[in-house]
């Protein structure tokens, strides 16, 4: 894959501001005073060794955890402001429109691919069905809304090449397709911020490249912000505009991929003194090239 075109530039507005985020579970401090920003139309990657607190950040952002301390502000480009830490879980998806995927895929396996995508448009369709009342008597407004929902689903299915399997059960898809389906299901909620938890996990190189393409498409064409947790450095380094590095719940580095790659603190975190085997091969290769090892 050729080098991706750069993002809309540093001029794009800040979408998400995380300030002093701290999450404690009893005596365990999972995240310790982390602050960072994510811009609209940027892919912001959160990386770090296992147990660094990356998924915990996501769980705070999407309302699965209530942060112990901290402020999470989402400022849509169109104006307005959502304080995510004060919102109930499902309302973050409904009103702030922060969508997410999960490390272990969470589709609705016994429902069809298309149904998965239509369920994602639940709130819109609930309104169109007059909260079930007018939908029950078969009002025209609902049928139109449902047709538009299917159109949106088809748009995304065409994009990932799964249109042919729209009526199959989601659980019967191959692993890579399930990953992509989960991403477009999140896109069907028409989010402002898309949070992806290790989307490249378990993908082969070809699928990984397709994923990169999809994420760049989402950034450039849908003009939304993407937040990405990833271990696969080929994904992180190629497509991120901005990288935040966590280690033991603290932020240790923050900058462009090139800056982060050369940050001694990051190298120490990944290399450690006795944790050499934790170094991702790509980073190792990069470091070897630069004569650091």
């Amino acid at each position: 894959m050729a080098d991706p075109p750069p993002a809309a530039g540093a001029s794009s507005p800040t979408l998400l501001t995380v300030e002093h985020l701290t999450m404690r579970f009893g005596g365990l401090v999972a995240i310790d005073d982390v602050s960072f920003e994510a811009r609209n139309q940027h892919i912001t990657a959160i990386i770090g060794p296992n147990g660094a607190g990356k998924t915990t950040v996501f769980n705070c952002l999407t309302g699965f955890y209530k942060p112990t301390v901290g402020r999470l502000t989402l400022r849509p480009p169109a104006g307005g402001e959502f304080l995510l830490e004060q919102m109930e879980g499902f309302r973050i998806g409904q009103h702030a429109r922060v969508a997410r995927t999960f490390q272990n895929i969470r589709l609705f396996p016994k429902m069809s691919v298309l149904e998965n995508l239509v369920v994602a448009q639940h709130n819109k369709l609930m309104r169109a069905s007059g909260f079930t009342v007018t939908g029950l008597v078969g009002a025209r407004g609902y049928r139109d809304a449902e047709r538009r929902a299917v159109e949106l689903a088809r748009y995304w299915l065409d994009r990932i090449g799964l249109t042919d399997r729209a009526d199959d059960n989601a659980g019967n898809l191959p692993y890579g397709a399930q990953r992509r389906l989960e991403i477009i299901r999140a896109m069907c909620t028409e989010p402002r911020l898309l949070c992806l938890d290790e989307p490249a996990a378990g993908l082969n190189p070809r699928e990984s490249a397709e994923l990169n393409e999809l994420l760049l498409f989402i950034r450039d064409e849908q003009k939304i912000g993407v937040l990405l947790i990833e271990h696969d450095m080929s994904v992180v380094m190629k497509i991120s505009d901005h990288v935040v590095v966590l280690d033991y719940g603290r932020k240790i580095s923050d900058g462009t991929p090139a800056e982060v790659r050369n940050d001694p603190a990051v190298i120490r975190a990944y290399l450690g003194e006795a944790e050499t085997d934790e170094l991702p091969p790509e980073v190792a290769a990069d470091l070897a090239e630069e004569g650091r090892i």
């Binding site: 998806g93 589709l107 396996p109 939908g135």
Partner: peptide
């Protein structure tokens, strides 16, 4: 075949995913 019915089935399949999609469980 209405959104509420699909949401029931989705809830049966995965409640956490439902919440992430903005469905009020």
């Amino acid at each position: 075949k209405l959104p509420i019915g699909r949401a029931w089935e989705a809830l049966r399949e995965d409640e956490i995913a439902c919440r992430a999609l903005g469905i009020n469980p």
